[in-house]
Design a protein around this nucleic acid. Sequence first.
DNA 1: CGAAAACTTGACCCAACTCAACGAACGTGG
DNA 2: CCACGTTCGTTGAGTTGGGTCAAGTTTTCG
Lengths: 247, 247
Amino acid sequence: MQSSASPLDFVVRKLATRVALDERDRAAILSLPHVVRTCPPSSYLVREGESPHKFCALILSGLAFRQKSTAQGARQIVSLHLPGDFLDLQNLFLEISDHNVQALTALETIGIERDALRQLTLHNPAVGKAMWTEAQVEASIYREWVTNVGRRDARSRIAHVLCEFALRMKAAGLCAGTRFELPVTQEQLADMAGLTPVHVNRTLRSLVEDGIVHRDRRFIGFSNWSEIRALADFNPLYLHLDQIDPA
Amino acid sequence: MQSSASPLDFVVRKLATRVALDERDRAAILSLPHVVRTCPPSSYLVREGESPHKFCALILSGLAFRQKSTAQGARQIVSLHLPGDFLDLQNLFLEISDHNVQALTALETIGIERDALRQLTLHNPAVGKAMWTEAQVEASIYREWVTNVGRRDARSRIAHVLCEFALRMKAAGLCAGTRFELPVTQEQLADMAGLTPVHVNRTLRSLVEDGIVHRDRRFIGFSNWSEIRALADFNPLYLHLDQIDPA
DNA sequence: CGAAAACTTGACCCAACTCAACGAACGTGG
DNA sequence: CCACGTTCGTTGAGTTGGGTCAAGTTTTCG
């Protein structure tokens, strides 16, 4: 019966997509100590080498990404995150951060007290299961990215990134499915795909010329989902979007 | 006081490297229903698209790898596993397998009943924490692999794979550190690095010619750890080898 | 000992990179 | 609301790291 506008409601709703939560579980989540924060575009939320912060962040609105750099100064973006994604799951149980997390757009996050969230994850089986599912889906996406960057050519690689983003946005209820804003520079897209910005530019152009992708500024549209899906060699299984409340 | 030679002792020892376990935790682990199995080289332990098996496997001896294929038939190896690694963590909480797991060498595994392990993970905080740490270290390794395959040239990439393997083997007490057997064909190495077998052959040869790597059959040696480490741009932080019992 | 698998090597090719310049869009302050 | 600096996108020309194809050679193993 609570009409609360607490940002923790958002967390409850998120976790409830992964597992059935009873009243007690919900109450436990809703009593977690937390803060709401906003971060400007490209600010760092986590830096490689740091110890975990007091709060574990989840995105309420906006986009973020994870990134590592090589000694030669090349950057690789290793994942993209949208509202409902945890940005700090790794730091819940590891003591030193192994990569950077950066805001892509302006970001609104809820920071949940690390200790409390860890205790809840370890002691409440329903919450624990939801958190495990989140973490395992994230790992599955990493595996797909290794494959994408390791074994697909530039066209497929870029198309694959676009397909994944479209589908995750749709699953999060943030776009209709075949048209969406991807607020990413071509340089950032290059860093996701393991390509150079120049080559991304040309490849993206060729996708547009072939009528597979429409583009206006940072807005992307697909003419034909099954066409781009085939080109991208995109099999949505790895997103485990059906992994919802198998109770 | 138990002198048991149960393979579960191995699991206890493994998890005890991640978290302090008391007698009750140990007893709970030691009572898990399980089977020991052997698998011939290149047999499949998990296939993409499958539902989870009744048992969740952990390697007792031998090596295994995870692998995905593209529609064009290219294969990418996304991780390598050695004794003490879980092969089925993902299937503990996900309902469809998103990749293949294959034996690299002859394999001896302990299969722990999935349901029982899941319950223990969710209900026993110490075991839960150990399992989380395992899973998060695995995720960290995926991030590094995305970076390796996306942003390093062939020499560094291959050197990086060698460094990681050497250090993980050493950490597992399976080699001294600068000389070890890597029972992998050049084709498999290529599939780890996102290269072709021919190019792996030439690149490996050039590393040998430069005196950075020694090779005899499948045995690899490093002349100078800091030299290959620099070439590989290898920073062992991501392996979280110190992530041991922060109690 | 013989067949299959793994490793080598050479010759050639091309997808993607580099370098460099220019144009378009954005945002910020006056 | 315009001027202007900055970031982002676009394009051309030339280069190269790594791929392809194909033919040996060595190793492994039944």
